[in-house]
Structures are given as structure tokens and as C-alpha cells.
Write a protein that binds this DNA or RNA. Sequence first.
DNA 1: CATGAATGAGGTTTCATTCAT
DNA 2: CATGAATGAAACCTCATTCAT
Lengths: 182, 182, 182, 182
Amino acid sequence: MAERRRADARRNLDALLEAAKAVFATSGVDAPAKEITDRAGVGVGTLYRHFPQRSDLVIAVLEREIDACAAAGGPLSADNPPEVALTRWIQRYTDLVATKAGLASALQSGDAAHQALREHFYERMSPALDSLIGAAKIRPDISAADILHAVALLSHPVPGEGPDYGRHLVAVFVDGLRNGTG
Amino acid sequence: MAERRRADARRNLDALLEAAKAVFATSGVDAPAKEITDRAGVGVGTLYRHFPQRSDLVIAVLEREIDACAAAGGPLSADNPPEVALTRWIQRYTDLVATKAGLASALQSGDAAHQALREHFYERMSPALDSLIGAAKIRPDISAADILHAVALLSHPVPGEGPDYGRHLVAVFVDGLRNGTG
Amino acid sequence: MAERRRADARRNLDALLEAAKAVFATSGVDAPAKEITDRAGVGVGTLYRHFPQRSDLVIAVLEREIDACAAAGGPLSADNPPEVALTRWIQRYTDLVATKAGLASALQSGDAAHQALREHFYERMSPALDSLIGAAKIRPDISAADILHAVALLSHPVPGEGPDYGRHLVAVFVDGLRNGTG
Amino acid sequence: MAERRRADARRNLDALLEAAKAVFATSGVDAPAKEITDRAGVGVGTLYRHFPQRSDLVIAVLEREIDACAAAGGPLSADNPPEVALTRWIQRYTDLVATKAGLASALQSGDAAHQALREHFYERMSPALDSLIGAAKIRPDISAADILHAVALLSHPVPGEGPDYGRHLVAVFVDGLRNGTG
DNA sequence: CATGAATGAGGTTTCATTCAT
DNA sequence: CATGAATGAAACCTCATTCAT
């Protein structure tokens, strides 16, 4: 009985995460709560029970992908020369930020509702990027946090353009990272 | 006589512009209309009389500075080698976008309410930057619009940081412009 | 000098009446005051000086047309057989009501502000219609006032339809007038 | 349990319908939403939840009576000769429109907010009247919709007169229906 | 633990009316 | 007498959030 309850709760939670993922992609992270709960087929109360703050939901939705991206740093630096590893990882990171509509703006917005997300995000990403930076040679006046921040900004989706546009701008920035050392 | 009345109207209009400038700086360009009118000491109707669309107000607040920035391109390219002129102008542009809180986000938001601002902005800035690009040698896969867009993104104010932070990131991007494809 | 002032005032008043006539026809009697004054090329204050209450303006506008319509009865009955004169006059009256969007409601509302209009309306129209009715043969249980009222209602403009629609319905009613006598 | 909640909701909904009915009768169908919700003792949000469009509320208020009137056509044509059935039904329809304040004006107003009401209304009434028209002989240039519209107009309540006045005018119109073109 | 109806603050926009010039 | 800028009440609609069931 208690198990059944837990199973139901789990199912609701999964439905919410799935729905939120889809809605965030189309309407951004500030989409109305109702849009998410309707799609998940649950009441709004259920959303608020599981995710009292909006960031809680955003974090939960993106957690796996954030973790996967952070974790990709190890294999990349094991299999590639440092510069290549860094470039590849930034590309992966760019794709993450560019394709998860709303992530970029949530990271950059001053909104207190996204504070927890920002903290979580940088906590995971900074160590991963730091070890890549340590191996590769980049200009010393730029930190991991700087890169994370800059790439997130440059990856902001642009209405008329596809995700390649952000990658293009990021490539210029990455070139600049090497350039300054010369 | 009619002059006197116009003086009153002018005073209100100035108060509105002043208030909007201040409010935009603290609360962004999407701040509630009431916040602006209260600060200006006028009724909401007065705001809507002068600025029916939100963009109209944003444009009015920033117009002089936008125009001044665009106009600075000529003297800069007359007095400096092309590369220096370009760099200096981008610095000036960075300062504009970075210090006018809300401008950066208004440019990047897909919000229809800011469409007129975006058009006005790019109409002024693109020609100015285009002639600087033509003289300086930069990678050919980047247009004036790309630079305007990227710098606006990188200049997004960051809560904990001063305006130098944006300049720092922009400097890296500008270094990347000089590279071919690395 | 005083004459010049009076001439100017008269011109403004005429412009207001002309503008109100046009605006009432398209936007109804509750159209924004600004719409009328803009069309007249005067300030709103001028409107309020001449017509402190909205009904004052409605009355002034409609009085002219009512007088013109009532006056048309004489010539029509002089130049046509009685039945034709009646039909033609009702057509003219139909056109009056159909194009003045607020006349019917002003006549029908219990509003004391429109009392003067109602009195004037029936004072002018009833004799005109009465002499036309007297010559033509219609059922005796219907008075001039009944016809004026019914036609005004049937002439209410219908969004999707042209003025012919009202004329069509009125034609049926007019047929009913003859029919009842048989 | 869920039943209890639904009972509350039902009570609110009934209160809204009751309040709307009363308010429509005194202030017309365009009365402010707040006037209705205050009278019902609920928040505005509750009104918008149940009736997103103004027409939805108007329809809900009048639905039963509209349906009852439409349904009366069958029995009438079963029990009476065609002409009598048509006349009786139009009388019944006249009473409906004349006594439900606001219905007549909502039907006639061009307001987009009442579009759905008009559609609902004509969807129900047209078939009922059509079958009565088919049996009775009336002039062919008049459709069911024309009659519904004309009668609604002629039934507009007149301050100084009772409901018989509208019936009188409608009777003339109905007589006109039997004529060809006179 | 889930539900979803209810709330009501909050934002926008429109206009009738006043009144200083 | 004319002007039209200013006012601010009023209406609309939307959601985030609560809480009784």
C-alpha cells in the first residue's frame, strides 16, 4: 500500500520531469506552471509539492544532462591532447546550453528564483573545466567560471537562427582564448 | 503662453526619461510602468501619451547614446590605424551596452515589444561597424551584426561583477576575430 | 475682433458637428471624444465647452438630420402618389436611422438626458409621417409613433450586412402595414 | 471527499450564474466582471476559470431558456396548422427575447465578445424556426435568420410600454411575412 | 500524498474630464 | 474662447500560490 503510493508518486514525478523538459524547450523556463502540469496530467499542487521553487524543477530536469556534461571531461582529456580535449568539451557544453532553451537565460537572469540552479550548475561544471584548462594552455587572465559564463551567454538562442549560430560565436571566443597567450 | 504649457509638458517628459533611465538601470527594461511614473511624479496616462509602446520609451532613453556611439566610428577610423579604430570602437560599444542596464537584454529578448528598439539599434550601429570592419582585417566568417550581437551578449551585466567584467570577456572575443580559424 | 472670435467659434462648432456625425456613423455614439475632436481639428476642451454632456452633442448632431428628414416629407408627397411618397419617406428615414448608430438607443433609453431629443424627434417626425399616412391607406391599429419606433429598431446596422439588410426588413414591416387592413 | 470539493465549486458556479443573471438584468451583458464576482462573493479568477469568454457566461445564463424555446417548435407544429404553429412560436420567441434583458442587445451588438452567444443562439433557433417556415407559406426572400433578427429587434423593451407593445409590432412584421412583395 | 478550485495581486491599457496656460 | 497635456479611475486578464478536501 505504502509501496503503491510511492510508485504513484514516482510516476507523477517522472511525468512532471518529462513534461517540464518539453515545455522548457518550447516556452522557456518561465513557462506557466499550468502548462507543465496539464501536459503531465497532474494537479498543480503536485508540482509544488515536489518542486517548491521553480529552480528546483529546472535543476531536476537538467541535472542528468549537467552531470553528463561535467563527467565528459574525464574521458575527453584521457583520449585527446589537452587543447583538443578543451575545445571538444566546450563544444559539448555549448550544445547543452544552446539546446536547452531557458537554461542560458536562467543562468544569466538575476532572478532569485534561479539562484539555486546557478549554484548547482557552477558547482558541477567548474571542476570539470578547471582540469581541462590546467592541461591546455590558455591565456591566464581567464578562469573556468569566465568561460562557462561567456559561452552560456554566446549560446543564447537567437529567434531567426539555428543552434549553429551560437556555436559560431563560441568558436571565435575560443580562438581568443589561445590568442591572448601569444 | 502656449510656450509655458509646452514647458510643463517638456518637464514631465524629461522627468519620465530620467525616471525611466534610473528604473531601467535597476529593474531592467521590463519594469512595471507604474514604477517609472511614480518616480517621475506623473500619472500612468502621461507615460502612455508620450510612449505608446514600451520600445518607444527605451529608444527615447537611449537614442542619444546610441547615436553618439554610432557617430564615433568616423573620427576613430580617421585618427587611428584600422585595427586600433575597430578595437576602440568595440570598447566604446561595450561600455554603452554594459552600462545601460536593460539594453543588452532588450536587444536579445525575442519580445515583440522590443522589436522597434532592435531595428533602430541595428540600423544605426551596423553601418558604423561595417566601415570599421572593411578597413581592419578580421576573419571573413563574421559580420558586423554578429559582432554587435556577440558583444551585447557578453556585456550582460553580472550581479556580483562591475562593468570591467564584460569588457574582459569582450576582449577575448575581439582577439578571436583576428584569428583565421585558429 | 469680437466678430472674428464668434466666426472662429462657429467654425469650430460646425466642424465638431460634422465630425461627430461621421464618427457616430462608424463608431457609434459612445465613440471616444478624442476621435471626434481629432477629426474636427480642435482640442477636446472645445468639445466640452460646447457640449458639457455627451448627450448634448448627440442631440445637436441628430437634430439637424431629424429636421432635414422631416422636411423631406413635403416635397415627396407633392411629387408622388401617396403610397410612393410614404414608401420613399420611410426609406429615407430608414437610411437616417441606419447610419446614425446611436439614434435608436437614444430614443429608446429612459435616460433623462435624452428627453429633449425624444420630444423634438416626435414633434418633428410625427406630423410629417402623419400626413403621409393620412393620404396612404394603412391598418388603423398602428400610429405614426409606432412606425417611427419599429423602423428605427429594424434599421439597426448589422455588422456583416450592408444598409440594404435593414431596408429589407423594413419592407416586410411596411407590407404588414397594408396587410392588416384587408 | 472529492465530492465535497466539487460541491463547493458547484456552489460558486451557481452563485456566479445567479449573480450574472441579476447583473445582466440591471446593467446589461457588458457589466464589469467585478460587479458580478462581488455579488457572487468570489474572486475574479473564479469567473474567468469557469467562463473564459464573456459569451460563455451569457450563454450559460440563458442556455436553458434558449433551449426550451427552440424545443417548443416540435409540439407546436404537431398540434397546430402550420400558420398557427409559426405564429405561436414567434410569440413565444418574442417573449423570450423581450423579457431577458440584455439578450436582445447582445444579439444585435457587433461586439466580438458576444460572437459565441450569437452563434449558439442561431444554431439552436434556426433549425426550430426553419421547420416551421417550411410548413407555413411565407415570402421566399426572408430566411429564418432574418426573422430571428427582426423579432429580436422589435422586442427591445420600451420604457413606457409593457411587453404587449413589442408583440404588437412583431404582429405587423409577421403579417408582412405572408405577403409576397405586396 | 494528490488534487485543482479559488484567490487576488499585479500588470496593461484606455478615456472621460479637468484646468493651467 | 481654445488648447491639449495630465490625471487616475476603471476595466481587463493572467498566473503563482494556497489550502480544503
